[in-house]
Nucleic acid binder design. Sequence first.
DNA 1: ATAATAGTGTCTGTTAGACATTATAAC
DNA 2: GTTATAATGTCTAACAGACACTATTAT
Lengths: 221, 221
Amino acid sequence: MVPSVPVSVDLVVLTVRNQALSALVWRRDNPPFLRRWSLPGGFIQLDEDLPAAAHRILAERAGLPGAPVHLEQLQTYGYPDRDPRQRVLSVAYLGLAPDLPASEKAHMSWQPVSSLTVMAFDHRRIMLDGVERARAKLEYTSLSAAFCPPEFTVADLRRVYEIVWDRSLDPRNFHRKVTKAEGFLLEAGATTTRDGGRPAKLYRRGPAELLHPPMLRSLKE
Amino acid sequence: MVPSVPVSVDLVVLTVRNQALSALVWRRDNPPFLRRWSLPGGFIQLDEDLPAAAHRILAERAGLPGAPVHLEQLQTYGYPDRDPRQRVLSVAYLGLAPDLPASEKAHMSWQPVSSLTVMAFDHRRIMLDGVERARAKLEYTSLSAAFCPPEFTVADLRRVYEIVWDRSLDPRNFHRKVTKAEGFLLEAGATTTRDGGRPAKLYRRGPAELLHPPMLRSLKE
DNA sequence: ATAATAGTGTCTGTTAGACATTATAAC
DNA sequence: GTTATAATGTCTAACAGACACTATTAT
């Protein structure tokens, strides 16, 4: 006799908006945790793969169909009373997105991570785990570009690092490191003066997934 | 109506034995995959937490009760037909252990990772994901010491890195880096001449979990 | 012209990797 | 003594961080 458990997929979708690292959340309109912020999620269907469920929930529940979101599995949360109604196992996925137009769904909104101090279930823990994963991965992968639109400047990319890490970075050293890292950035050819001053070159994501050398967040401020 | 799925916990327990990175596996004695190597695993019980299930399986199924094994969640595998009999979601855990006495269980043995080219279900994929996680974590955490007995020499630790990474490392540079890394090693006071030559100091694990600076596997051999 | 931002160069201290040398045991 | 391994030291090239300087736009 093998016990079965309902399995949900919950999403920690992060973006950089208004100078703040923000997560996609919705306000619950039913008990338990009525009116608390909650991560978008849903139960997996029979014969549905986990990544497929994550993409379906991103489209249907989160209201971001077809959005260019990097999705990767985060962790699985399973202690028995994390949902007071019944035991639910939750496979969390981490999504990184550029600053998108608002979700089409009612009750769904981007909220700064720092403001989400109280959430439904164990969703705050899940969200914080996702934030820490994102912070760590910016060091040794090229995922920072997942927070940017298809074409972006070095300054755009620097602001992503500064906001996600909550640190200021020297623009000149950052420029040198990021343009020297093999396969990180490809010149798009065009420039922009949207930020004023000398025109900035536009770049696209390069083929590299891992950064050599990595962008280390040093110990000092 | 919420679909439920049986959930198993499978273990990738790794150790360094006979100059080889080895995993704890057993030979299946039932179909499907009769006689294939398989990871130790079992279904979670009602009201059982995931880490608790992992420890229970380590003791009962793997035959290593009370062994000093570092356990951490690896990943969750859920595509629908990974078990041909019925859909099973598997939460994999990674375990790192010193060279232990053999498991008490029949059919259970340590096999070199490189020899496990064919396994039951998707267990080879799971095992390789665990190996890659272990390789990566040796770089920036102090987990290498989890492969060592409570007291060990710098040379012991170096052999762990060399075998897990399949690289040779310069003993002198390794010694300098590892003894300078803050909180990595604590002198145990004693020495040993078990390897011949000048007596080597014995160390214990220090309090640090993260290494500053990290032990990078460089690009070159 | 001034202001603002982009991009390059220079200097210095730290670190990685290569490798010489010394230290302490067994035989 | 020789041999084996441990531990320390030296040198050089690469890199991080601090910061001066030049380049190109808008006003």
